[in-house]
Design a binder for these strands. Sequence first.
DNA 1: CGTGCTATTGAACCAGGTCAAACATAGTGG
DNA 2: CCACTATGTTTGACCTGGTTCAATAGCACG
Lengths: 239, 239
Amino acid sequence: MLNHAIKQAAPLPPAVTRLASLATLDAADLTILGNAMQRAQAVRVRRDLMVEGREIVQPQLILSGWAARVRILLDGRRQFLHFLLPGDVIGMSRHSNPIAVSTVVALTEVTACPLPDGDMPPGLTEALAVSGAVDEAYLLAQIARLGRMSARERIADLMLELHERLSANGTAEERSFDMPITQEILADAMGLTAVHVNRMLQSARRSGDLLWTNGRLTIPDPFALARQVGRTPTRVTKG
Amino acid sequence: MLNHAIKQAAPLPPAVTRLASLATLDAADLTILGNAMQRAQAVRVRRDLMVEGREIVQPQLILSGWAARVRILLDGRRQFLHFLLPGDVIGMSRHSNPIAVSTVVALTEVTACPLPDGDMPPGLTEALAVSGAVDEAYLLAQIARLGRMSARERIADLMLELHERLSANGTAEERSFDMPITQEILADAMGLTAVHVNRMLQSARRSGDLLWTNGRLTIPDPFALARQVGRTPTRVTKG
DNA sequence: CGTGCTATTGAACCAGGTCAAACATAGTGG
DNA sequence: CCACTATGTTTGACCTGGTTCAATAGCACG
């Protein structure tokens, strides 16, 4: 079938794949999205996409690369709150004169495009609303991880979450995905030190739970690992 | 002035005070709110106001008492994600067929009323939107606390947050407020054990930072304590 | 072929956890 | 009015998961 052949030749961009997984998008939605993506801009590593306390100019959609929401304490301690992957939205808000409640920094080279902040066709509106709900669910998961899981569990649980999220945007394999971050960044996301993260990763590798080489993370048996840490997939809508 | 006299005689309920602090409410907003509050219902301690994974029937507004969002791990470990105080809203969502992403449990006897989930006058709509943004800010603060603060700092920071929030709904004094929870609940909110919370509270009392007696918490010098832990007030709108 | 990250390893240390017992305090029922 | 129970707080002794500090090694890049 022609349609099929075309799809194979030109797969959807990850950001579109993700949004389409959250709500049904029709032609009008895809047009708006396509236009927005024309205005994509590159952001270099370590540059901020958004700064805590500053007015939010426009919501943005991550098209490629990894970013993160981050808080820095006065003495320099750093906590990553949430990773932002292709298809994730930043700076959405439903009220007037919003200011950013966290800084967003690029962890790799990132491309992102501004999103119209006014009215949008219903499919896209719904997708963005669902995206917001999913984000909240991941924030809650992060709290439970930091508050009540051991270092081993935190890392396993986060890897499963990333696998789930990258699967939703079509950029993960069945048991592996690219993870272009350092152990130090992972440590600052998990409330641990880089040294301890290193030791836990080695221990996880020895036990066959996780392998991380050349920027690629492999989870030999995602299902078994999920059972082991008591993880269930994140859902925000019925049906 | 008569108006003044009336206000003194019948101060606004905490929930209204809070919402009015988030957006300008006019007569139409107050009418809707007043009607909703007629349908207030009591919820007993330990009862759930909402269960993770179940469909959200209707958003609710907390009128009195304390509740919390909570996650329980498979082996029974418990993490409170966020405290819910009078004026807080639960179960708001912007998408269709939402399911609850966390359980909400009453920590004390609670009264709450259902909120219309359709269209509302603009002031109330804005207040609820701002409320959602504030909630998100507090979730982020909780992540930073659990991930990167010491036990002492976590407790001090949370107490300052509660003081800020209870001030916004008019139920806190300048340097104290009622805190009707146990040390074990506090521990499960801070990712600590009850034993350690107890020791930290005693140490905080000895150093004059916090006193907690007869269910009332006193912060002798909130301003100094905030400076000490590097805390700045939470803001989500400009102006 | 130095310079700057990132990853790895070892050894000593400590914040916070665990376990167990004692000590309130408030109902509650007899 | 007093035992009896239940829930919460406090204390002590000991233990461990994770940190700290420091040194080494790998690797990309100019």
